[in-house]
Simulated assay, not measured.
Amino acid sequence: MTDSIAASHQVVKVASSFAQFTKHLEAALGHLDRAMFGKVETEPAMVEAYLKQLGGEQDLVLFGMEDHGALLTIAGAPRRAKQYAIGNPLIAMSMTQHDMRAALYAPLRVLVYEAADQKVRVEYDLPSSLFGQFGNAAISKVADSLDAKLAALIASVDEQGAK
């Protein structure tokens, strides 16, 4: 079986430099201690308490970062480009408990890069367009809130980085 979905792709031009934007983005997010997941089967209440206090701006957490720009050094042309995995385990759980397929898109992927014009862009697929395919009102409500959270995070980080 093959299904196709249409994702709404967002491109945000920011005023900050690449270095300032990425620095402030990484500082704004909660940082996940993956070792805590090893305790979820034996100490679920403790893990839940940990995840609730993890915080981060807009309750978003950094799951990981890949420096795709540095990888281009192999081709002889390094660039400034980082891909971030951003989300919140508890928010993801609030969707996957209704439909496990939501795990395909949690955490979300956000690309920050310096374009050929030396301006910084932030690109991502709108969560509501990714999660909307499941046709579940509870998931769609969470996805809509993630649309707003990502937009607010990007605007706030850009404001901090542009100062």
Rank of each mutant, 00 (worst) to 15 (best):
L25D: 01
R80N: 15
P89K: 12
S8E: 04
A143L: 05
G55R: 13
E123F: 04
P44V: 11
A45I: 09
N136M: 05
E41Q: 14
A19E: 13
G76H: 05
F37S: 03
M100N: 13
E41N: 12
H9S: 12
D125M: 01
Y105L: 02
L54K: 06
A102E: 10
K82A: 06
S4M: 11
G87W: 00
G56C: 05
S145Q: 14
L25I: 08
H31W: 08
L62R: 06
V61Q: 08
Y113I: 00
A49F: 09
A85P: 07
Q118C: 10
I91K: 02
F21C: 03
V157G: 08
A49C: 02
Q58F: 00
I154S: 02
A49Y: 10
K141C: 11
I154P: 04
S156R: 06
L32R: 07
Q10A: 05
G69W: 14
G161W: 10
L153G: 00
D59P: 10
M100G: 15
S17I: 08
A6T: 13
T96R: 02
P107M: 04
S94K: 11
E123Q: 06
L54T: 03
A138Q: 14
L29N: 02
A7L: 04
M46Q: 13
I91E: 01
P89A: 06
A28V: 00
D3C: 12
L51T: 10
A115F: 09
L111G: 10
A155N: 03
G87R: 08
H9V: 09
A15W: 14
A27P: 09
V122L: 00
M65H: 14
L62T: 07
V122M: 02
M1L: 08
K119I: 07
D59F: 08
L90M: 07
Y113C: 02
D158I: 07
M36L: 06
E57R: 02
G87L: 09
F63H: 11
A162P: 05
F63C: 14
G30R: 00
V14Y: 00
V12L: 13
L146V: 04
A7V: 03
V47G: 12
R109V: 04
